[in-house]
Design a protein around this nucleic acid. Structure first.
Lengths: 107, 107
DNA sequence: CGTCAATATACCGCGCTGGTTATATAAAGC
DNA sequence: GCTTTATATAACCAGCGCGGTATATTGACG
């Protein structure tokens, strides 16, 4: 359960997922899009693969990487009980705004 | 924006947040509850503080730590565009089940 | 003021990570 | 079969992260 959290700790890997969210990509495309060395991209993709966040489809020498969002659902499940809490904060802010005053500091 | 992701990459820090979700805790309570050395707990709490995930209230020598869920909302915002995707997978699974067959492998 | 209690910081060792360069693998094309 | 193309792995290195022990800080209390 911990794997997706550690995989997403790296901003480069989050950018990779943001790419794959639009459409599947070749490993090479990903590296080029993010300005990575070829082995650098390959290593990040391995981490994402082992976290179950991407799947690979072979086509000759090429590797099509595509997103598998299932582990993100686990993260979402972890977040769920907290969601209530920040909703409450936002609601309080809205009530404050409804009173006709902004949330600025008192002078 | 990256700070909450790296803060949550560590399972011990996620457990700390799970504690704080119920009620505020003293630093010492947290360390004891998780079987950490006192400085170990203190360091994790610092990381969470710098990520904006916890606030501290001083009371004599004691420090009450309480959750601030706001940065989790940022993570949730990052997750949002993916949510649609795993929902689709779940829907497909449900349709499959509705057809009267489980999702097991074909023999 | 000295001591105790609660927490934070300094420092250290080590394993993991992210990045690189060099090399291996695998398929395609000639 | 050799070369090119696409990707993966190996080997190496710098640096960070997390764990611990030792020490500093801060406030309460006598």
């Amino acid at each position: 359960m911990s794997l997706p959290f550690t995989a997403l700790a790296d901003p480069t890997r989050r950018r990779i997922l943001d790419l794959l969210r639009r459409r599947p990509h070749l490993a090479g495309e990903i590296g080029e899009a993010l300005g990575l060395s070829q082995p650098g991209a390959s290593k990040h993709l391995r981490v994402l693969r082992e976290a179950g966040l991407v799947r690979v489809r072979r086509e000759a020498q090429r590797r099509w990487y595509e997103l598998d969002p299932a582990p993100l659902a686990e993260m979402d499940a972890w977040l769920a009980p907290y969601r209530r809490m920040w909703r409450e904060s936002l609601d309080a802010l809205e009530r404050h705004l409804d009173e006709g005053r902004g949330p600025e500091e008192e002078p």
